[in-house]
Amino acid sequence: MAEILVLVDHVDGEVKKVTLELLTAARRLGEPAAVWIGPGADGAKDKLAEYGAAKIYVAADEELTSYVVAPKAALLAQLVADKSPAAVLVSATAEGKEVAGRLAVKTGSGVLTDVVDVAEGAVAEHSIFGGGIIAHAKVKTGTPIVAVRPNSIAPEAAPAAGAEEAVSVTLSDADKAAKITEKVVQEKGERPDLTEAAIVVSGGRGVGGAENFKIIEDLADSLGAAVGASRAATDAGWYPHSFQVGQTGKTVSPQLYIAVGISGAIQHRAGMQTSKTIIAINKDSEAPIFELVDYGVVGDLFQVAPQLTEEINKRR
């Protein structure tokens, strides 16, 4: 069976959940082979094997993570040449898509981004135009490169051998043209990553000010959720831009999305419409967000949200 390369997303030696989703999807296409780039693979190999990695290619050289994206694409291009995989899967994060783009140029292959499902033959499903259209696409030329949106595919364990093989690549000067001199950690809390979280609680214009975002954070914390914000809220400076959910921000697809004080303009809907269950609290009964909801409450968020937090905490 042909190999399917899966680029591992990891932070501080921890495999991110999206990688387990990619390994699960890869099993539909062939035999998953995880590709770990950077130091720290040892602590993660069991997890990768548990989710179906028959092989684990480890490129431990720290140099590969010292430059913007290009070295990762160089390593994958070499593996594509050496191992002739049937497809390469990466996560559809901002960086994952960039790796996919460079790899596509290097290998002369078609690339499909922001895919929400993958079927046999590497047929990819897209949810486009803010979730209004479902399209299926495939790659005609080269090795299919597919960037899959986090939280789109349920990860399932399927233990495999996880045989390790050390790999390396010689970087060109062009691969080393954009040097990362410092990684600055700004927001690191206990909350899960926005794009990976099973539950997201977002606040919008109705929240009314930076200080009121505590209401959103308290609700999020009662559910172990990530916090998001609409563009109105980030534009006003109430919450950092990196938490913006929407067309010009992050796309999320959690099990549960709670929109608080968000009217639901297309700008916002484009970033959350594929959430499985949607709840909204808004004082305007005509707000378009109510067209999407499974459950909605028309009311004052300053009354409803704290009560919800309290009720959830009571049930814990």
Binding site: I279, V293, V297, V298, R315
Partner: peptide, 18 residues
């Protein structure tokens, strides 16, 4: 979906739904 108007118990109703 189901949309209700808050009558002082909106938060509790969402909790029930959850």
């Amino acid at each position: 979906g189901q949309i209700v108007t808050d009558e002082g118990d909106g938060g509790a109703k969402i909790a029930e739904f959850l």
